[in-house]
């Protein structure tokens, strides 16, 4: 078992906490190359998602992820709302009916989620979006070696930082063309938080 309902809930709560803390940072990143609302959007949505799952106790990872998905879809708006919403919706479908899952099932869920993101946003790696973090993070999860939380986090971190060098081809930053170079993509930064928090949680004991 790498993930169960209890850990998944912890993941969402802790991710929400980090987003609240880094709301200003994410917004600042978005002010540089977007419209300056990424932190505001995610802070609003993840707070609601955390509230929503607190109100319930889950026996089913799929149900938990579905509540997160629906809340994000209904509360975030902008580009990141449908994207994160779609990702959690795919997780919920992959993990439906399971209380806990092994590494393979986890990787499968995230692969589906990544497919969902690509289908919804039509971005490719290199377009300077959250995909630039999702693609390598999901590849690492699905890889051969042992699953190491710190490595997962560091893959995500490196790729997040790598978006700095890229020219945006999708999302609002694409309007800047070359001027988008030199800034970290806000969605890549929030996706890094998502994976690094997941990495922490799967590395912890049953009820840390």
């Amino acid at each position: 078992m790498v993930l169960d309902v209890e850990k998944a809930a912890r993941w969402i709560h802790r991710l929400n906490g980090k987003i609240q803390e880094q709301k200003q940072y994410l917004t600042d990143l978005d002010q540089a190359i977007g419209d300056g609302d990424h932190g505001i959007n995610l802070a609003r949505g993840f707070q609601e998602a955390a509230n929503a799952i607190s109100a319930n106790s889950y026996q089913d990872l799929g149900a938990l992820c579905k509540d997160v998905a629906m809340t994000l879809i209904g509360k975030v708006g902008g580009a990141s709302g449908p994207l994160y919403g779609t990702a959690f919706m795919k997780l919920s479908m992959a993990w439906k009916g399971q209380k806990e899952i092994d590494r393979e099932a986890m990787a499968k869920g995230f692969k589906d989620a990544l497919e969902g993101l690509k289908m919804r946003g039509k971005a490719q790696p290199g377009d300077k979006t959250m995909i630039d973090v999702w693609e390598p993070a999901v590849a690492y999860m699905a890889g051969e070696g042992p699953l190491n939380g710190e490595e997962l986090a560091s893959v995500a971190k490196e790729k997040m930082e790598g978006t700095k060098e890229l020219e945006a081809k999708k999302g609002r930053a694409a309007y800047l063309g070359k001027r988008s170079i030199g800034h970290i993509d806000p969605g890549a930064a929030s996706s890094y938080l998502l994976f690094s928090t997941l990495a922490e949680v799967i590395g912890e004991g049953e009820s840390a």
Binding site: D35, G36, D37, N41, R44, I73, G77, G78, A79
Partner: peptide, 8 residues
């Protein structure tokens, strides 16, 4: 929301 697309 201000400058943010509405939700589905």
């Amino acid at each position: 929301e201000v400058f943010t697309s509405p939700t589905p």
